[in-house]
Design a protein around this nucleic acid. Structure first.
Lengths: 87, 87
DNA sequence: ATGTGACTTATAGTCCGTT
DNA sequence: AAACGGACTATAAGTCACA
């Protein structure tokens, strides 16, 4: 069971849907941009308080971060402008 | 949005439903007992990895910890030995 | 069985960068 | 725009004690 992967994927999914950059989200949520990057790359192990701030900045419920990953999550992961993961 | 309160309440609710002590849960999840106590009292700000371990020990999905609090959560909060206040 | 305090250690999270 | 590194500082989390 990997909550960290769920948070990483859902955060990136929602953030990209809203077309907001890591930097802008960082400002809105009052966190450092490297923290957002780290969470999305599953490098960081975020706290509940931090997820709260991100949820508020994105106007979502905090539970959205824990939605289960779809089976094809790996394909969608690094989704910014057109660039796909090499596979 | 208080994710910390949600986690606190849901953890205590589920743990008491299962009739498992903080101590036993601490052993099962390989965390310190005072950490569980702190989370349930909203004193600690737990990380996702920690919630993962607790969820696994309780055989629940991690998202259970973020279920919204019912309106009467305050009434149920300090439940001792499984007994609910009568209201 | 739980709450809480003091104290230590590990790491989350920040701030500065470069690629 | 985002990945990633180094060097910090704040705090999550562990250990031990006692009410």
């Amino acid at each position: 069971m990997d909550g960290r992967a769920r948070v990483a994927w859902n955060l990136r999914r929602i953030r990209v849907e809203r077309e907001v950059s890591q930097e802008n989200l960082a400002v809105d949520a009052d966190v450092d941009r490297t923290t957002i990057s780290g969470i999305e790359r599953e490098d960081f192990n975020p706290s509940i308080d931090l997820l709260d701030r991100l949820a508020e900045a994105l106007s979502i419920d905090i539970s959205e971060f824990l939605l289960p990953l779809p089976a094809n999550a790996g394909d969608l992961k690094p989704l910014k402008s057109g660039r796909r993961p090499k596979r």
